[in-house]
């Protein structure tokens, strides 16, 4: 059980890292305009990056704790942040005009999938960590 919990924590850490730095460097939003100015989607990217940093922080700090309940609490917080990150692009902060632009076709789905994956893995991790406590 401990081993499964640890594996799930590592997966959560990897997903959070991917969401945080991936949004910034890999599946980022549209490139800046020719005049150097940003399009609206840039601010959605920045916001996701910010939420990603919190997820990255929580998922790394989690390794320092042994207690299953503490971990469950932290993962619960991550669930909410991941949900927020998932719906942020275009729903909370507008993206660009055309949905075939990079922010729509690359960043939005990638953030959505990572957000959902963090939530799914998080739920499993919470169940496992609570069982750890029962033993």
């Amino acid at each position: 059980m401990k081993k499964t919990g640890l594996i799930l924590d590592i997966i959560l850490f990897m997903l959070s890292t991917a969401l945080c730095f991936g949004t910034k460097f890999v599946f980022h939003a549209c490139a800046p305009k020719e005049d150097g100015g940003w399009m609206v989607c840039h601010w959605a990217e920045q916001a996701v990056f910010g939420l990603g940093l919190v997820l990255f922080f929580l998922s790394s700090v989690m390794f320092a704790f042994k207690d299953g309940k503490t971990k469950s609490g932290m993962i619960l917080a991550m669930e909410a942040i991941a949900a927020l990150a998932a719906i942020l692009p275009n729903h909370l902060i507008n993206l660009c005009m055309m949905t075939d632009m990079r922010c729509h076709s690359v960043m939005k789905p990638a953030v959505l999938i990572l957000g959902i994956l963090i939530m799914i893995v998080g739920v499993i991790a919470i169940i496992i960590h609570r069982k750890e406590n029962d033993v």
């Binding site: 305009k33 399009m39 989607c41 005009m97």
Partner: peptide, 9 residues
């Protein structure tokens, strides 16, 4: 300019 982005429509 379509109002938000520099991509023409």
């Amino acid at each position: 300019n379509s109002g938000c982005c520099t991509i023409p429509v």
